[in-house]
Amino acid sequence: KRPVSAMFIFSEEKRRQLQEERPELSESELTRLLARMWNDLSEKKKAKYKAREAALKAQSER
């Protein structure tokens, strides 16, 4: 099983909040919005998710 990506971790963290704030969005619209949010995120903020990705990857390799 492959470890999850930093973007996937970000998306899972933000998805529920966005669904509550924007219930009119379809699943595909929500996914596009999350992708745009990820792309607009600064490298400094992405680092938090990339660190979690690395930790999960290291854990799965044990």
Rank of each mutant, 00 (worst) to 15 (best):
K50A: 07
E20A: 09
Y49L: 01
S42D: 14
Y49H: 01
K44I: 06
T31D: 14
K45W: 04
R36V: 12
A58K: 12
Y49F: 04
F8S: 12
R36F: 09
E29N: 05
E21C: 10
S26D: 06
E43S: 04
R62A: 15
E43W: 03
Q59M: 15
A51F: 10
E61I: 15
A55Q: 13
E20C: 13
A6R: 02
S28G: 12
R62E: 15
A47P: 01
P23M: 03
R15K: 15
E20Y: 09
R36Y: 06
S11G: 13
M7Y: 14
R2F: 12
E29C: 04
Q59N: 15
E27P: 10
S60I: 11
E12Q: 07
K1D: 15
K44W: 09
R16F: 06
L41V: 02
L41F: 02
N39K: 09
E53L: 05
M37N: 03
R2S: 10
V4D: 14
I9Q: 04
K44V: 13
L56N: 06
R22S: 07
M37H: 03
A54W: 05
K44H: 07
S28Y: 09
R52Y: 02
A55Y: 06
R22A: 06
S60G: 15
K50V: 12
S26E: 08
Q59H: 08
E43M: 00
I9C: 10
K46A: 03
E21K: 11
Q19T: 07
Y49I: 01
Q19N: 07
F8A: 09
L25E: 01
W38R: 00
A55M: 12
K1Q: 05
S42Q: 03
R2E: 07
R2I: 06
R36P: 01
A55H: 14
R22C: 10
A47G: 09
M7E: 12
P23W: 01
K44R: 07
E13C: 05
M7K: 14
L30Q: 13
L18R: 00
E43G: 04
R36H: 02
E24A: 08
L30C: 10
N39Q: 14
K1A: 03
E53D: 07
P23K: 05
D40C: 04
E53V: 10
Q17G: 12
K46M: 02
A51K: 11
L30Y: 09
E13W: 02
V4K: 11
S26G: 08
F10K: 00
S42V: 02
R32Y: 06
V4A: 11
N39V: 06
R62D: 15
L41N: 01
S60H: 02
